[in-house]
Simulated scan of single mutants.
Amino acid sequence: MTYTENDVLQHSSDKLGIVTRESLPLDTEPEIISLRPGTLAEYIGQPEIAETLAIAIAAAKKRKEPLDHVLFHGPPGLGKTTLAHIIANEMGGNLTVTSGPALEKGGDLIGILTHIEEGDVLFIDEIHRMPKAVEEFLYPAMEDFAVDFVFDKGVHARSHRYRLNQFCLVGATTRAGLLSAPLRDRFGILKSLDFYKQADLIQITKRSAALLDIGIDNPGAKELSRRSRGTPRIVNRLLKRVRDYAQVRGNGTITKQTVEAALALEGVDKLGITDLDRRYLKTIIHFYNGGPAGIEAISATLQEETDTLVDVVEPYLLKIGLITRTSSGRKASESAYKHLSINMTDANSQDIIQRTLF
């Protein structure tokens, strides 16, 4: 006996109820709910950057050209990767994502560049960590949309230029000063992302809560945004922890009291200061008499990576004035003493160090 495709489909649906020609809602649902906005219209905060990109994208689409190469720099979690996704969506191209440390050899980059289609977007995160030999392959790719191959060696060496499809390179870095001048100058749009205002973070909190299907009142959103260090990534991370607390210990709705109780367990205070921040400040105050202290010395005392302190801890502490950076090193400000409730005259006492540092 032979069966047609319709017979198989009908038999399967009768027996199991899972095979059908129609696309079910479950088929189109993402595996993980993304809190990342997909368009500039959905993007909240950084109004000057959003407006600049909107104009540049509209102009590029009108001319039917790829967008100028874009470089974003700023502390982690402020939306550099999100903006790269938005640029790809707005330009109607595919997004290829990689990072500077992942591109170990020139061949790694060439393999990616030769597979990019017309109008696509290449996003390189932590672009300042790209090896110099790989970086030099980017120069002709960014300027002329071509890469140069060298065959053979010595007197038999010959060069071949391979033409690439026109694309847009989006670079992201937390250390703009470590980028070489030739690479930095090849970007047409350079934008610095700053910490977000509380009003913008409140909007982000409410939008994310709606996507996560959790209720949150205005005082709760305000309190959560106040403790998020001006960073969307942190506000979304803390929101998920507060959501867990509200569903297990509360009534399923996030209030100001819920936020305070949940973040007390996380060690996040009213300024968004974490346990690592407090250890960092107390190290400067107690071990180095309030500073100045070199970052390598602080890193060795804390047994934390220097890059972690420079990229994650220091930007926010500098922003709110708890530390200052001098030519001699880092110093704790008077505000840091007050926030930690440390008496400046007793800061060097050994018994206080033992009781309060770790």
Rank of each mutant, 00 (worst) to 15 (best):
M1Q: 12
T2D: 14
T4W: 09
E5H: 12
E5T: 14
Q10E: 15
T20Q: 14
R21M: 10
E22I: 13
T28P: 00
P30R: 07
E31T: 12
R36P: 00
A41T: 11
Y43Q: 09
Y43L: 15
E48R: 13
I49Q: 07
A50T: 13
A56G: 07
I57C: 08
A58I: 04
A58K: 15
E65T: 14
D68G: 12
V70Q: 02
N89S: 13
N89D: 08
G93R: 10
T98D: 03
G100L: 04
E117Y: 08
E117C: 09
D120G: 12
F123W: 06
K132F: 09
K153F: 09
S159Y: 07
H160L: 13
Y162T: 08
R163F: 01
Q166D: 11
C168E: 01
T174W: 07
L183I: 10
S192P: 00
L193T: 10
L193H: 08
R207P: 01
S208P: 02
A210R: 14
L212N: 10
G215E: 14
G215D: 13
S225T: 06
S228G: 06
S228D: 05
T231F: 00
K240H: 01
D244E: 11
G250Q: 05
I254A: 06
A262E: 05
L263R: 05
E266F: 05
I273Y: 07
D277N: 15
L281Y: 03
I284E: 04
I285Y: 11
H286Q: 10
I298C: 07
A300W: 03
T301E: 15
D307S: 15
L309P: 04
V312N: 11
P315H: 09
Y316K: 10
L317M: 13
I320K: 07
I320S: 05
L322E: 04
T324W: 01
E334W: 08
A336C: 10
K338T: 14
L340P: 08
T345S: 14
T345V: 12
I352N: 12
T356S: 12
T356R: 14
